[in-house]
Design a protein around this nucleic acid. Sequence first.
DNA 1: GATGAATGAGGCTTCATTCAT
DNA 2: CATGAATGAAGCCTCATTCAT
Lengths: 211, 211, 211, 211
Amino acid sequence: MSRPQTDIEAGREKLVETAEQIIRERGAITFTIADLAAEAGMSQSNVYRFFASKDALAEEMAGRWFADKTAIMEKLVEEDIPVREKLYAFFARRLAVMQQRFDENPELFAAYMELGDLHFEVIRGYVDLADHYMAIILAEAMEEGYFRGLELDMVVSLVNMMVQPFCNPRVMMMLNRAADEEKLRLIIDAIFDGLHAPSGQTGETELHLAG
Amino acid sequence: MSRPQTDIEAGREKLVETAEQIIRERGAITFTIADLAAEAGMSQSNVYRFFASKDALAEEMAGRWFADKTAIMEKLVEEDIPVREKLYAFFARRLAVMQQRFDENPELFAAYMELGDLHFEVIRGYVDLADHYMAIILAEAMEEGYFRGLELDMVVSLVNMMVQPFCNPRVMMMLNRAADEEKLRLIIDAIFDGLHAPSGQTGETELHLAG
Amino acid sequence: MSRPQTDIEAGREKLVETAEQIIRERGAITFTIADLAAEAGMSQSNVYRFFASKDALAEEMAGRWFADKTAIMEKLVEEDIPVREKLYAFFARRLAVMQQRFDENPELFAAYMELGDLHFEVIRGYVDLADHYMAIILAEAMEEGYFRGLELDMVVSLVNMMVQPFCNPRVMMMLNRAADEEKLRLIIDAIFDGLHAPSGQTGETELHLAG
Amino acid sequence: MSRPQTDIEAGREKLVETAEQIIRERGAITFTIADLAAEAGMSQSNVYRFFASKDALAEEMAGRWFADKTAIMEKLVEEDIPVREKLYAFFARRLAVMQQRFDENPELFAAYMELGDLHFEVIRGYVDLADHYMAIILAEAMEEGYFRGLELDMVVSLVNMMVQPFCNPRVMMMLNRAADEEKLRLIIDAIFDGLHAPSGQTGETELHLAG
DNA sequence: GATGAATGAGGCTTCATTCAT
DNA sequence: CATGAATGAAGCCTCATTCAT
């Protein structure tokens, strides 16, 4: 309950915001501590009262990026809606947030990708959490008879792959915002309707690797 | 028409190779011009005879990365095999190449991703080419009755999205090599079997966005 | 005459002790004012109420180092024991104190040496005092017939030189604690038995400087 | 035989000299790389072509300090002069060099002491070498009957202690140049005439430690 | 009496790049 | 053609110290 914390917290907040602003103005994550301090109206040395190093600031920023998305997932899992729609919403809601961010400022978005590269641990944690929640939804779907013949782990992995453009910001960015709700819907349907173990008889893919 | 040109090309070659070697040894793209020159057995200043700047070198390196994969695609499109298998091979063959590179040296692989970030134009060109070839294959599939009710552009876009982990090295790396031929096969099948316009009656996804 | 003085003294005391403690824990004299304040449980700015500068603190610390040794010397001079033993005790008693301090914490000991370098004036005063007391003892010895042919000043200087490892903490430290009571005894004896003006006839040293 | 080495060596030389000059002008070892570069007429970055770090420069300087003294010792040991005079010369010759340096510039001398503190390894090597040579001389003296009743190791240690002001620059400096050839002669004589194992009967020191 | 906040000056080091030879 | 030498600009970080409250 000590108050000092609060002030420090406010300073951190301000710096993170200033950093975002700089990125927004300049594009890319090229700001220096000097830039940051200047823009935030404080001395370079004072920055170090709030973050022990430039790295620490970057880590904090990376962490914040996921805050709202984590909340979305947590909330959704507890909702009572049909499983197909649940999986759809699982991606759609986060997609909306990401798209908004991207549209607001693609450069800032890109800068956060860089930040992510620099602090992969932060990302890893978020990704694992997302996989966990997705597994819950997919298990529910399997109980209803979907993905016949496949193990849960496999389904999780496959679905994860097929929806990368909707949950992986990096891919989203690379595909330059081509991912939208309509496509997500079609893909989710293709997953529910077309994803199952090979039945052996019909025209399944055979090897044609020899280049 | 003077000979020097040739020597220039040889020098560029050597420098690119040296750069790769350094990355291989050190991991990540941290080499300096001094490092590069030393390893290549020439002076720092001489490096500038071959590349106008460090950036130019990076661009060259990024460009080379796609050379073999382009060849694979070009060749495949002309082969006469069933369309489902063709699409499968379209990704599987390149996947094999990328996986091999990744396994050989994950660090070098990662370094190339960084390089890609730095020189996105290079990547964009490759991606567009790949889309072009894929469109040819998918058009063929549509003639055979697949993806009913969907436009070619839409199909191209959707398929592209669903197979990102198999054609986008960055995603491949992020999923930590979870992408393999078996999963690709399942996904390709899901695409052929499950991807089509919504028929309106069955359990298709409905909107559940309201968080 | 106001009370504050007392508080100031208490604060100085506390800070000096805290500084010692930090050195003890960390080795070497690397603490910053921030460290010191934190460990002492006060604000950085408050430190300046007690010491005008970091330098002033260092000076105070250097001064305290000699307090007990000064007491030892003062006491000894007034004791009534044979002069040879008195000279021996003059060094032996202080040696014991220094060795104990060194053994307790060599790092702290070394840190004090640094402190001494920084504030030589403090040391100079102590050294002069020690010389003064030693002169009293040596004068007594000369009255008993020792050091025949030499002036008191010369004897003081010579003895001082020969016993550096037993009275100069820096030397003590450099010789890595090789100085002990046994050796001191042998040297004191050599001084009483061997130190006198050259008699001219026997094998005294002659010049052999020409390199 | 490559030439570049030479140039680098010249640069190192120049920087060391410049550093010495700065110390001479300013007193104490407070120069920064910026100072050094400015005084040497080059850019800060260029300094790093000659020394990998400020520390490396300091180490080099510390090392050079002993070069001539080492040469003196090596030469002396092989000379054929009476042992008492040899021991005397062993210290006297180096003393002369050190005194000259001290007189030339006490501040520079002091700065080198600091340098020594910072790079003790360098010093340790020199000290060990000196002890080695001294042991050779003292062993010779023992063969002639001196130091009766004492082990060589003990004699080395004791003599070492008694002549600190003549061989340990730090002590020399502390005693403010009181050490001179005359005193050295008296002390060497005292050593030869007075240093031996206690004979038990005469007025040897007894314990008077109880403060 | 005591604090938190803030600063300014400076420290070391790195590196792409240039240029005279 | 190729080099060695040199640079300048910048980057991150540290710390004693001050000052309004």
